[in-house]
Amino acid sequence: MMRECEEHGYFRDEYCPVCGEEGKFIMNDYELEKLGRTMAGILRHGRFNLKMDDQGFVRIKDIVSKVKENNPRMHWLRPHHIIALADTDSKGRYQVSGDEIRATYGHTIPLDLRLDTDNIPDELYYPTTEEEAEIILEAGLMPSDRSMVHLSLTYDDAFAAGSVRVENPVILAIDTNACFDAGYDIGKAAKTVFLCKQVPAECMRIIYEEELE
């Protein structure tokens, strides 16, 4: 459920988490999920071939028009619905700039995202399987189904991401300073997601949870 508090803005709940007011209805859960999937298709994968700049930004009004054109049942859609979805996304999947929006990560299309490379943690993490870990540690880490390698802020973040594929993912620790020294910059894309074109084999190792205790 998406609502808007007059004082505290958009929120995803029955009541404003700050003041407890019910707020104004914006979208139900089904509409929220439907719009989120459509936006991911447009901003991450180039669906509908909307005009997109080299950093991945698309005009919000263009998205509204194209969604309504292809799904008449969403005739109610307005720019503020898209802004509300972006503002309340807990993972920071979207960035709004003026009248444009882009996905911060997950792209399968080549872009020049120009991410912030300052204050990158000394170590980031990547989930994989036992079989793939051996190959990666020998050959290095390259993008597979995405245009960039996606790294996680914490061990737990990586484990959660890897658990979507396998029950007990193997977690690789990435030495970010070594990665920069090798000429592969790492940029912050979202709250817990960092992107890199590739990671050399010598910049990573398998890490176990007990090492972090």
Rank of each mutant, 00 (worst) to 15 (best):
F180T: 13
K188S: 04
R44T: 14
A160D: 13
E4H: 14
E211W: 10
V67P: 05
E130T: 08
E132G: 01
R114P: 10
L212S: 13
H107L: 08
K197T: 14
T128Q: 01
F48E: 01
F25P: 00
S65M: 05
K191F: 09
P169I: 07
Y126N: 09
L77V: 03
I206T: 11
H75G: 04
T104P: 00
I135T: 13
F194N: 02
I136T: 04
K34Y: 08
P143A: 05
I171K: 04
Y125T: 11
R3T: 02
T38M: 06
Y10V: 04
S144I: 07
D89N: 15
M204I: 10
D122G: 15
N49E: 11
M2Q: 09
F194E: 01
V166S: 13
E21K: 12
L212C: 09
E7A: 14
L124R: 06
E6R: 12
V149G: 11
L50H: 01
D156H: 14
L151G: 03
A139E: 12
I186P: 09
E211M: 10
E22V: 13
S90Y: 15
G56D: 05
F180I: 12
T192N: 10
E22N: 09
L137Y: 07
L50G: 01
D99K: 13
D175P: 08
E69I: 04
R165S: 09
A133K: 09
P200S: 02
R146P: 06
M148G: 00
T108A: 09
E211L: 10
D181H: 12
R73E: 15
M2E: 08
I174N: 00
I109G: 00
W76F: 15
D116T: 08
E131G: 07
M2C: 11
L137F: 07
G98W: 09
T192Y: 00
E14P: 04
C179P: 03
H107C: 01
A139F: 12
L32F: 11
A158V: 07
S97W: 04
S163D: 06
G183L: 11
I171R: 00
V193G: 04
K66N: 08
I207C: 13
V193S: 02
P143I: 06
T38R: 01
R146A: 02
V64C: 12
V67K: 05
R37L: 07
K34E: 03
A86S: 03
L153F: 05
L153M: 06
T88H: 10
G20V: 04
K66H: 05
S90T: 14
L85G: 03
F57R: 02
N28Q: 01
F180P: 10
R47L: 12
M39T: 12
I63A: 08
I83S: 05
D29G: 11
Y15F: 06
D157Q: 14
E210F: 15
V149Y: 09
I60G: 02
L124W: 06
L212R: 13
E4K: 14
Q95R: 14
I109W: 05
E21A: 11
Q198T: 13
K66D: 05
D112A: 03
E31P: 07
D13C: 01
M204P: 06
D99M: 00
A86N: 07
